[in-house]
């Protein structure tokens, strides 16, 4: 099942690696993603991930990362429609 996550991240060079590492290790595959810088310098990461596992198994782990400011599960639609639409 594809899940859509929206994260805000601290501006650190390695922050994307952290998020992607946890995503892979916890058993989720990134299908689509887009990252942009916000006015407050934080990064906004829109990510669609695929897994048979419950999305909370990922979102709670991402939430624990020190440089993840917020992590919101948006729903179950493919991200491409959301971020390109």
């Amino acid at each position: 099942m594809i899940h859509h996550l929206v994260l805000t991240l601290e501006q650190r060079p390695e922050v994307l690696e952290r998020v992607l590492r946890v995503t892979r290790h916890r058993g989720f595959r990134v299908c689509d993603m887009r990252m942009s810088q916000q006015e407050d310098q934080r990064l906004l990461l829109d990510m669609a991930v695929d897994s048979d596992k419950a999305i909370e198994l990922l979102s709670r782990q991402l939430d624990k990362l020190i440089d993840v400011t917020t992590c919101v599960v948006q729903g179950y639609q493919p991200i491409a429609r959301t971020i390109n639409g």
């Binding site: 060079p13 390695e14 690696e17 952290r18 590492r21 290790h25 990362l65 020190i66 440089d67």
Partner: peptide
């Protein structure tokens, strides 16, 4: 080392 630390620390820094 920062890269290596990602999976085995609660958090890590490289001071820049």
């Amino acid at each position: 080392v920062l890269g290596m630390s990602l999976s085995c620390t609660k958090h890590s820094f490289m001071v820049t």
